[in-house]
Design a protein around this nucleic acid. Structure first.
Length: 413
RNA sequence: CGGGGCGUAGUAUAGUGGUAGUAUAUACGCUUUGGGAGCGUACGGUCCGAGUUCGAUUCUCGGCGCCCCGACCA
């Protein structure tokens, strides 16, 4: 894409109404536009990042047998009244039509997915099944905060699985857990999963996937020698205490952002909708339901928080809006055009390229490129004109090297 | 929801009970061109309502909005 055609542009100064790094950089870079507290629109660069995040999630969910659907976000109030959520869920946005009908905006989709599954799951042969969607969620938060980390409207992947037994749910949970780790790893994050809260069999399982960052809202304790991680509120060992799992290290305290979670919903929702299936013996049974969320918007914000440096955003290649940022430095009067344009044409046959063809000085282009954060910059100027080379600069490390155009086209860099 | 802070050009900021200033952005011209260039010109602003006052962007009250801390986060 030609950067001269990109309708957004960067801002030199941080907006006065954003303090957090993720919002400040994403607004300055032209990724997002704030509509009101806790509500942001995604601009061309932002939607590209979001789509990549969604594609990674989609890929991993499909691999474990998840089937994608798209549920309504405008919900009938009856469903929420059946489950009790209409009165119990305080973050539920409720709205009234001009004919006094009541609706809810989806803050989670059990009320919708359960009746859908009910229609098709009638036998144990139909189980297990996992259904997911990626879409917008609405929550009437008392206080939106931390930029895109906690909004009133946000993107989320939510999957729901239905099982014949608790054992089968837990079997599937392990599979989903590995898929979640893959998602976060592919998106450039190192996630930890909290241990189940308490050991009592009467308590339902609930796991949270955490990424260490000061921008998070949770305080956790974790072990550096093993995978142990627990929320401070439920941890039975204090900071500095021996790890209850491996005993090799002392627990460390940290701030973390919850980027994903899992809930064991048991039979609650099937019961609310009288959703039963027939087991092998012809008996009617309620399925066990599991719910798995990943906040896509929050994931995007977390990546910015964790990887950005003082110059701007640093995207992992997997979710960067473009693979290459081609920067033309037209130091001489008439060197503009020709060479860089040809490289752009050829390079964009195989890769996503943002081509800074704007008539600006080098310093401003470099500053913009650093703010936007595409991992690999390709700098074209008269320097390599004679021998057909360009400069490749790594956004993260700042290291640069000279490569031939041919090597660039074949990504042999 | 409790507490605190704040609303001035597109953006970021000064300032004043009496004509609102700077930077940046934008447009045009000339010079410049590997780290956010220089000069000149132009365009553009006091959140909304009420009150006090001869006069309110400024003071008072109310509303709306934004940020931060806390609480909350099936």
């Amino acid at each position: 894409m030609l950067q001269s055609q990109l309708f957004t542009k960067t801002r030199r100064e941080a907006p006065k109404d954003e303090i957090t790094k993720n919002a400040e950089l994403l607004v300055r870079g032209g990724y997002i536009h704030k509509e009101m507290a806790g509500v942001y629109s995604l601009l061309p660069l932002g939607i590209r990042v979001m789509k990549k995040i969604e594609d990674i999630i989609r890929d991993e969910m499909n691999k474990i047998g998840g089937q994608e659907i798209r549920m309504a976000t405008l919900h009938p109030s009856d469903n929420w009244k059946k489950t009790g959520g209409w009165d119990a869920v305080d973050v539920l946005f409720k709205l009234q039509s001009r004919t006094d009908k009541e609706y809810a905006l989806g803050q989670s989709e059990e009320e919708i997915v359960t009746p859908i599954a009910q229609e098709y799951v009638t036998s144990y042969k139909d189980l297990p099944v996992a259904i997911y969607q990626i879409g917008q969620k609405y929550r009437d938060e008392l206080r939106a905060k931390s930029g895109i980390m906690r909004g009133r409207e946000f993107g989320m992947k939510d999957m729901y699985s239905f099982h014949e037994s608790q054992e089968d749910f837990e079997r599937f949970y392990e599979i989903a857990k590995q898929a979640y780790f893959q998602v976060f790893k592919r998106a450039g994050l190192d996630a930890k999963v909290t241990e189940a809260s308490g050991g009592s069999f009467s308590e339902k399982l609930s796991y949270e996937f955490m990424v260490l960052t000061d921008a998070g809202e949770d305080n956790i304790l974790y072990c550096e020698s093993c995978t142990h991680c627990a929320n401070v509120d439920v941890s039975k060992v204090l900071e500095g205490g021996d790890c209850p799992k491996c005993g090799k290290s002392k627990l460390k305290a940290a701030r973390a952002a919850e980027v994903g979670n899992v809930f064991d919903l048991g039979e609650k929702y099937p019961k609310s909708f009288e959703f039963t299936y027939k087991n092998k013996n012809g008996e009617s049974k309620y399925p066990i339901v599991g719910c798995y969320g990943i906040g896509t918007t929050r994931l995007m914000g977390t990546v910015v928080e964790v990887l950005a440096d003082e110059k701007g955003i640093v995207w992992p290649e997997t979710i960067s809006p473009f693979k290459y940022h081609l920067i033309e430095i037209a130091s001489g009067k008439e060197s503009k055009g020709g060479r860089a344009e040809g490289i752009y044409e050829k390079l964009s046959e195989n890769y996503e390229v943002l081509y800074d063809d704007r008539d600006m000085r080098a310093g401003e282009k470099f500053a913009d490129a650093e703010l936007i954060g595409i991992p690999t910059q390709v700098i074209v100027s008269e320097r390599g004109e004679k021998d057909g080379t360009v400069e490749i600069k790594n956004r993260k490390t700042g290291e640069s090297k000279v490569v031939t155009e041919e090597d660039l086209f074949t990504s042999n860099i």
